[in-house]
Design a protein around this nucleic acid. Structure first.
Lengths: 235, 235
DNA sequence: TAACGTAATTAGTATTACAAATAAGCACAT
DNA sequence: ATGTGCTTATTTGTAATACTAATTACGTTA
């Protein structure tokens, strides 16, 4: 759903390169970058392309430019942590256990809340889509089909909240987590183990029972977490 | 804490202008913009400045440029709803009741969760800061002092979660909500009405009681919401 | 010593030229 | 008539250059 980048443009590459340097800490906060002309030359791009990249990095809160002073890396406080790129860079460059925990924590906060909201506000059409996804999960015969249907289930639940802020947050977090492991897919052997959980969530949303939906979803995601902890990362 | 912009740069102005046009719907999704040369001329800026702005808007998921085809406004699905600018534009241009509800819903999801997390993981130093903020609230003699201390309280609680994703989400939502009303400040008469609530939250975090902290905070934010509903907007 | 002005530096803006991608139209062959 | 491949026109992508504006740093002067 969200494209994890495919940098064809030159400034896109520059964004990636500088972004990674900053997130990884090789360019520390407070540190000043070489002046544009020099940096452009050093990266073998024109000043034009470099500047287009720097404007984007500024918008992400990573750098700050001022005349005469030059360009500096900003303190981490100012970084837009929920920006898809920033998150992706952190996942790729600082794959620490604690960061995964933070992502999982966010997921465990929004998903139950989303299930409850969906139970309150879902339209019949949205319920139908959740149902479709659930049935696809039930019918899945291999891990791939399961994973696709599983993601669709959660996306449709989020969508049924009719709160695009929640949808957006979910997709960002989910994408970031996806770089670590295939979500909620346990072992290939019993990959359908969470189907009953999903059914409970679906039923609660169908019956418009917010608190039941919340608790069922909570159980599901905490189960999923312990499962992930048990099996560690994959692929 | 987060700067609501002060656009001195030319491309910054262009970003604002185009961003607003898109968010407001005057430039509808799917619609193509005039080609760069034309648009630049029409906006009385150079193509350089226009392009720098367009790169930023692309990064926000608002537009998409391809050679020969030109630049088009993307579907709202792709907009980065949690981007500070996008949120600010929506607040300014679509001040609908339903959007405020969505923001409030997000707040009511993260704050109790954050209180619980803070109760689990706060350091002594972080607890001290929360205490300071609480005492400043208790000592406040006017609405302004109260509002400042109140914000500091919530910020410090969020910070004590040691999850910068949560902190970032909070600050974005809070800034957006702040454009509508002075948060959780009721009438000037009894502006301290929520002090006992805050104390309960503080105590729970001090005693490391996550569930108590969650419930106390939940009560506080729901109270705050009904209060806001009762009094309507202000300022 | 302090105030003021001047020079030097760096990002900001503009202009121009050309490169690369690609949609659309045309010609050609089947 | 249809589809296939070439050509061309259009639009963004990249580069190079020149100049503007802001601001720091320094040196001069009162």
């Amino acid at each position: 759903m969200v494209k994890p980048i495919a940098v064809r443009n030159l400034h896109g590459q520059v964004i990636q390169e500088l972004g990674r340097l900053i997130i990884s800490g090789e360019l520390a906060p407070g540190e000043g970058l070489p002046r544009e002309e020099l940096l452009a030359e050093r990266m073998n791009v024109s000043r034009t392309a470099l500047r287009e990249a720097m404007k984007v990095l500024s918008a992400k809160g990573l750098i700050e430019s001022r005349q005469k002073t030059g360009t500096r890396v900003r303190e981490t406080i100012h970084w837009h942590q929920l920006d898809a790129d920033v998150l992706a860079w952190r996942c790729a460059l600082m794959p620490t256990e604690s960061f995964v925990e933070k992502l999982v924590e966010m997921r465990e906060i929004i998903e139950p809340a989303a299930a409850a909201a969906a139970a309150r506000r879902r339209t019949p059409e949205q319920l139908e889509k959740i149902k479709d996804a659930y049935e696809a999960m039930a019918a899945a015969e291999d891990l791939d089909a399961w994973a696709i249907a599983d993601l669709a289930f959660h996306e449709n639940v989020l969508h049924a909240t009719n709160n695009e802020l929640m949808t957006s947050l979910f997709s960002v977090i989910e994408t970031a987590l996806g770089t670590y492991f295939v979500l909620s897919a346990s072992t290939a052997a019993n990959f359908k183990y969470s189907l009953p959980h999903h059914q409970k969530v679906f039923d609660a949303i169908r019956r418009r029972q917010p608190e039941v939906a919340r608790k069922s979803m909570l159980k599901m995601v905490t189960d999923s977490r312990t499962n992930i902890r048990r099996h560690g990362r994959k692929a």
